[in-house]
Amino acid sequence: MPSEPLIQLRDVHLAFADNPVLRGIDLDVHKGQAVSIIGPSGSGKSTILRCLTGLLRPQLGSIRIGQTQVDQLRGEAELIALRKQVGFVFQQYNLFPHLSVLENLLIAPTKVLGRNRNEAREQALALLDKVRLGHKAAAFPGELSGGQQQRVAIARALAMRPELILFDEVTSALDPEMVGEVLAVIRELTEEGMTCVLVTHEMRFAEEISDQVYFTEHGRIVEHGSAAQIFGDPVHERTRTFLQHALGQGGQRPSRPAPDVYRNLGRYSLSV
């Protein structure tokens, strides 16, 4: 692993009016890593991602991505140069409703990067196949389910061939049934070595795919470490209680059989 991280945040502070949201964030992401940021709502997780892509500007501290000092960027041209490198996937998909799925994938590469349209089209179709939506190229966003729209949004971010992708609670707006199909796409990306930073409430998923996990609360990093350490042996009491609730352990409800017992019920009843 290279010693120089791709993303480096140092003592990042940000407040909306008098309301401090980030109170000194330090965060490192190395190239090819998948890093998850977890924590209770309102702890500033999404704000960190927005700072990374220059949608928000911190009042204090330093943010570096590659060679770019993000907090120093002035003017639209410099921000555009940054955003060509950084993909962003939103909780609410935010596809362009007036464009077909294929056009959603084509518009930025052709208009922003000036890529050849035919070449961009081939790439877009390949990406749609990758997210298993090749058959929906001509559909409009309004005709797709939430999970399908989110997969298109991921493909749209990939079409820019970014160096890293930021995922902002991308499954929070989805029906439970659709969460799996979106996570499968993200898992594939991490396996291919795409640098990913995820804000997520899917703890099992974060545990499974992350190289590093950051736990935030009240605008601070409470602790961070490998997925195994954070989920298996958290140092801080606060992390421990959060994970207990988030993973549904230690609740008052009587424990139920594991889901796979239900799924395989047929097999059990056969033996009766």
């Binding site: 555009i80 955003r83 950084v86 930025a108 820019m160």
Partner: peptide, 14 residues
Amino acid sequence: ATQWEAARSLAFSR
């Protein structure tokens, strides 16, 4: 406003 945000994050100019 999310349409602006989405487009901005795809490196579109204003």
